[in-house]
Design a protein around this nucleic acid. Sequence first.
RNA 1: GCGGAUGUGGCGAAAUUGGUAGACGCACUAGACUUAGGAUCUAGCGCUGCGAGGCAUGGGGGUUCGAGUCCCUCCAUCCGCACCA
Length: 923
Amino acid sequence: MSEYNFKEIESKWQKTWKDQQTFKADNNSSKPKYYALDMFPYPSGAGLHVGHPLGYIASDIIARYKRIKGFNVLHPMGFDSFGLPAEQYAMQTGQHPAITTEQNITRYIEQLERVGFSYDWSREVWTSKPDYYHWTQWIFIQLFHSWYNKETNKAEHIDSLIKKFEASGNSAVKAACDEDTASFTADDWKKMSEKEKSDTLLKYRLTYLADTMVNWCPALGTVLANEEVVNGVSERGGYPVERKKMQQWMMRITAFAERLLQGLDTIDWPEPMKDMQRYWIGKSFGAELNFKVVDKDITLTVFTTRVDTTFGVTYVSIAPEHELIAELTSAAQKAAVEAYVTQAKNRSERDRMSDVKTVSGVFTGSYVINPFNGEKIPLWIADYVLAGYGTGVVMAVPSSDERDFKFATHYKLPIIAVQEGDRTDITKEDFDPKAGTMVNSGFLNGLAVPEAIQKAIKFAEEKGIGKARIQYKMRDAIFARQRYWGEPIPVFYKDGIPQTMEEKDLPLELPQIDEYKPTATGEPPLGRAKNFTYKGYPLELSTMPGWAGSSWYFLRYMDPKNITRFVGEKAEKYWNQVDLYIGGAEHATGHLFYSRFWNMFLYDLGLVSTAEPFKKLINQGMIQGRSNFVYRINGTNKFVSLKLKDQYETTALHVDVNIVHNDELDTEAFKKWRPDFKDAEFILEEGKYICGSEVEKMSKSKYNVINPDDICDRYGADTLRMYEMFLGPLEQFKPWSTQGIDGVYKFLRKLWRLFYNDQGKFLVTDKAPTPEELKILHKTIKKVEEDIERHSFNTSVSTFMVCVNELSSLKCSSKQVLEELLIVLSPYAPHITEELYATLGHKESISTARYPQWKQEYMTESEFEYPISINGKMRAKINFPMDMPAADIEKQVLANEVVQKWLEGKAPKKIIVVPNRIVNVVL
RNA sequence: GCGGAUGUGGCGAAAUUGGUAGACGCACUAGACUUAGGAUCUAGCGCUGCGAGGCAUGGGGGUUCGAGUCCCUCCAUCCGCACCA
């Protein structure tokens, strides 16, 4: 072969790897293990674009690197194949989502294989396959039969809770449970009916049914999770979303709040990612305080982080959704309150968000007593109070809280300063509510804020009017969607009591239905299934949300074919934990959070060996598209070039980036692109039509999608891989551009020419390497190893380029040198290195080679060229032996004539010699 | 508003613990070889100046013999959260 024929080479090796199962991971290996994982994709109809493989290439480099470093590597791929788009498509066309999904996956696999990933395809999982969701359902059942014991601080089987109830009721039980759980004795428990017992236990189960306010999307006919609602409309489709009370399956993730928070300190994740999760959990320290309602037998409890300001409370405000509002409203205020509550409830999420600045509220007519000073203060309803956080009741301290201040000013409520520097009437800029010492605050006067808080809590606890409390922002997760294309929930209802199916009867397969829409009576699509029952009882009609299957798939890869367990014990112990997880930062509060939750739960049950599923996480940045535009003069079929467009009234239109080269439009191709442009005319600048450009998300509708197959056709997979790495730091967001891909392609051809000249003559010899060649090689081995360990892939590509340039200008032909270079390069460019490695006479794949050990002795220099700086300016360069003492260097520097010239006869104040770095002369 | 990230040539970017800023690649310029070149090779390429030199890492200030790197401050862009008491 005289030319670098990447097409032939790549298809040959991809076939060989597949046939010989080169990358099959071994579950019975004595080697150390390494688990490198990509976030598996949702297979969309559009196929892969060049942005998808970015993270996959990085993890593949690491997987291949670890293999030649002697690890047994698990590097799997699969598909998150339940999801809304396939279902939407089914609703429009009637095609079963399973068919759509399978077609898309087939296409994804084809595309992935062309890039030459070293996946162990024998472990492929799809979340929509019954043999997979069997175990998703099984985990759901385990959650249902568990509760969270705050004493042992872990999840336990529900039986241990029932025993406690039987022995002594629930008063001594410390558990994560619903807020409204009433207390009962052992006798009460025994007297309860089946239904009552079931209802009680639901308040403790880790997955439970509850009436909650949900985000209901009428257009999609389903509830949505908070993170699926963006700006008051659905993330997918952009349909309006409203608040609605519905009975839903929930996951008691809040039980794990503290451990999910603490666990962050034990894992190697990007700090911004941890911060997002910390913020999502939203832990705050504070206290609850009781406010007795005047003339009523009601006490309202508030949560506050600033008990120290209690003397400054001038009113108490309550959320419009609060259950006690009717009881708390006086006859005189009844009409006003009802009107306000109705209006507040009907306000959509979107209105509320776009309108955070307006204050609104209404007086209830009731008063409460400030527990610190016994003063009577009014009780207001205000929609800035959230029903779902804390107790839904807030003590308002206008002098120290921005919102309370606004509200008090608006409704002319009194304001009492409780700290030095507090504002009482006008808004002061630079107001720090934690700075001043306490005033007007009885026993707290003169204290600084932290001490005042401690003293106030102590006071409240002693008086029995309140206590310290830790509050989290995080809410329990809704675990049901009224959709078809998801895991059926393995629950049936016997006399209205929810029960889980027997494990031996799993999986509960998705039934066939004739249409994928909700039923006429508003039931989910599963309501259309015939005989959808279990033991004669009706089954749950909701399905699981999208994150169910993805919350544990990393465990299934360890033992994907196991039919008796979600993962075999031995396999789980061996693979243990994902060593490196690469994926997008957009999953911070979704997938990554839920996966940690499920894994921690399984850990409590002794089913997995590590509490945290992902030891190290890297976020790859998104590759954006670069769109091109043409400018059509309004009302004509004339197009004007970029610089001249301001002289006309024009409309910018996206143009297919494939008919634009370096922003110059191929006008002939443009005329053929779409029929209505057949007769297009152009106003050119300097004989060219120049297009405008913009960086946007890659999408079909913007005609800016670059397909990896096209790059593979033109330059080959090895070039694609190296170029994507060369583009810049992995974490960075960057627009796709092929400017520069030639440089990478040239590099690979240059590498090829080290082995074969233009006539196809094999150049490699058994000649002993020269010291210079060894130095170049070993510098490269060391640098690339360091780069991979710190995930700086872009600099490695540069290192390889320098190495090949230098070897080629030395006309290096040494087999020893070239072979070691190939091994080091193989994770980046697996096909070409595999081919060349074979031409050196190897029968085994290069992935079985060992990463060469770099040796300092080849790199050691005898001399170092010192830059000499005078007063911080570089003025000369002088060579000195590596181990020369600083004092000798000093003397010789002063004797140097160039230095003398710059010194102009003056004696230096001091001379700083940094060995093997620099000599600095200070005048 | 709160939290986070980023800012270096015409462009993508390097600079790992403060030590010759701009490695490597693209684009560009000149030359060589060639019937030709979207091939290959050689050289040049931050700005400014004829030159010695001077000026340059978003702006301003500081620490240091020495700052892209550390500290203060301001600005711009992007991302996440957003009435969380």
